[in-house]
Design a protein around this nucleic acid. Structure first.
Lengths: 245, 245
DNA sequence: TGTCAGCCTGTAGAGTTTTACAGGGGGGGA
DNA sequence: TCCCCCCCTGTAAAACTCTACAGGCTGACA
C-alpha cells in the first residue's frame, strides 16, 4: 500500500514532464507495472459518434485494437456504455457481467477474449461536455488474483485515470474551452423556450412581449454565438450549459 | 497517512448505509473531521441556470449560504466557474487567485471572508451531461497550516468528493438516464447536419437524396425522441451525445 | 450630456419547416 | 411467407422563421 502510494506520487511527477504520447505511455506503464497491471488502454475521448479520433495510449494487443477500430466496435461496446452511465470505476468480464449483455456486445467480449482480454477494470472519466474518457486495465489471469489486485488498488487506479486525463487535456488539447457569450436575461429566456419547442409567437405570449421582440432577442443570441441558425445556437447553448432541457 | 486511508475506508462503508441527507452529512463530516477540515460544502448539482435546486450538504455558516442563494451568487462565483473548467481539484483564496479575478467575483470573496470562508479547496465532479457538482472545504486559518493539510490530503479529498457524488446520484436521484433512442444512420446524418445549420434542401444536396426524404428522416428522428420540434430533438440529441457540434 | 447596452416594437416579402395526403422497394427475423 | 423497419419520393397548403427596413425607451457610466 505504502509502496503503491509512492509509485503514484512518482507517476504524478512524471506526468508533469510528459509532453509526448510516448512519454505518457511510459509514465502510465511504469506505475501500472508497479501494480502488476501491464495491460492497459487509456482512451482519451471515447468516440461517441463520428467525432474525431481519440487519443489512445495503450499496451493492448495491437491485433485487437486494429479489429476494434475496423469494426467500429465502440458503437456497441458494453464497457464504454457503462463508462458513460457510471461515475465510479467498475469491473467487467465476470460471468454475471456477461450474462446481462445483449448478443452483440457479448460477441465483442468473445473476440476480445481471443486476444487475451478477458476481465478488466475501467475508470470512467467524465468531462464537462458529456465526453467520457476511460482508463482500462485488462487481464487474462485467473479471476481470483486479478480481482484481488483490483480490489486493493481500486482507488489508486481511479486517481491514475483522472490525473492522466487531466494531464492529457491540459497538454494535448490545450485548456481551451472558450467561454460562452453572456446572454442577456431576455435572450436567455427566449432561447430556452425555443429549445423547449415553443414558436416565437408562443414565446411572445409567455413573456408578454411582441413576437417581433422575441425574434429580435433570438437574433441577438445567434449573433453572440456567431452562428446563423437557431438550431446551431441551441447546440452551442446546450453544450455551454447556457440552457437546459 | 495510514490513519487517513483508514478514515476513508470507513467513509466508503458509511456511505453505503446513508439514505438521508443527514446521514450523508454525518458521514462526510466524520471523515473530514478526521482530516481537520470541519468546514465543507457538497453542492450536488451546481446550478447552471434556473434549473432545479441542488442538493446541498454543508457545514458552511448558515448566514453565508442564505446570502449566496438570495443573491444568486452562483452566477458569478469564480470557484464554480473554475470547477466547470477544470478536472482536477484546486485551491482558492490565495493572493494570486484573488488578483486575477473580475471585480464582481472578488466582491463575493470579500463577503465570504466575513463569514470565515477565506481560503479553500474544491473538488470538481463532472457528470455526464455537463453537470458539475463540487465538494468544497474552506477555512479561516492561517494560510500555512491549511494549505499544508490540503497538500497532504489532496488525493484523498478528491476521492471523497467523487464517491460522495456517485452515492448521491445513486441514492437520491436513482440511476435514471433513460437510454437515448437509436436513430437510423440517415436520421442521424440529417439531424447532425440540421444541428450544424443546414436547411433540409442543403442536406438533400449533401446526401444526394430528395428534400422530402430529408424532412421524412427528421420527422422520424423527432418521433423517436418523442418531441414536436426540430429544436427539441437537437437538445435531446446533444444531451444524449447522439450528435456533436 | 453624450454614449452605450439592453429592451422594446412594427411591416413585409422571401425562404423554410411542418403537416397531411399518397406511394414503392429491399432486407431480416418470426 | 408475412411483417416490420429502413430507405426513398411526390404535392400542396399552412405555419413559421429569417432578413432588412425603421423607430423609441431606460438606466449606467464617464
Amino acid at each position: 500500500m505504502q509502496r503503491a502510494m509512492q509509485a503514484f506520487q512518482d507517476f504524478v511527477d512524471q506526468l508533469d514532464e510528459a509532453t509526448t504520447a510516448a512519454e505518457l505511455q511510459q509514465a502510465i506503464a511504469r506505475v501500472l507495472n508497479e501494480l502488476q497491471l501491464p495491460v492497459f488502454a487509456y482512451v482519451g475521448d471515447a468516440p461517441v459518434n463520428d467525432a474525431s479520433a481519440p487519443l489512445i495510449v495503450a499496451t493492448y494487443p495491437a491485433g485487437w485494437a486494429a479489429r476494434y477500430y475496423e469494426q467500429a466496435y465502440h458503437r456497441f461496446d458494453a464497457v464504454l456504455a457503462s463508462a458513460t452511465a457510471r461515475l465510479l470505476p467498475f469491473d467487467w468480464g465476470s460471468k454475471d457481467y456477461l450474462a446481462q449483455l445483449d448478443p452483440v456486445p457479448r460477441q465483442i467480449f468473445h473476440e476480445a477474449g481471443e486476444f487475451g482480454i478477458k476481465r478488466g477494470f475501467t475508470v470512467p472519466i467524465h468531462e464537462g461536455h458529456g465526453k467520457v474518457a476511460t482508463l482500462n486495465v485488462a487481464s487474462d489471469e485467473a479471476f481470483r488474483s486479478f480481482s484481488k489486485n483490483i480490489a486493493e488498488n481500486r482507488h489508486l487506479l481511479h486517481l491514475i485515470g483522472v490525473y492522466t486525463h487531466a494531464h492529457v487535456r491540459h497538454r494535448f488539447h490545450g485548456i481551451a474551452i472558450p467561454d460562452a457569450p453572456r446572454l442577456s436575461p431576455r435572450e436567455h429566456e427566449c432561447l430556452q423556450w425555443a429549445a423547449r419547442g415553443k414558436s416565437s409567437y408562443d414565446i411572445s405570449e409567455i413573456l408578454g412581449i411582441s413576437q417581433r421582440t422575441v425574434v429580435f432577442h433570438i437574433e441577438n443570441a445567434k449573433a453572440k454565438f456567431k452562428v446563423r441558425t437557431l438550431q446551431q445556437a441551441i447546440v452551442e447553448a446546450v453544450l455551454s450549459h447556457t440552457i437546459g432541457r
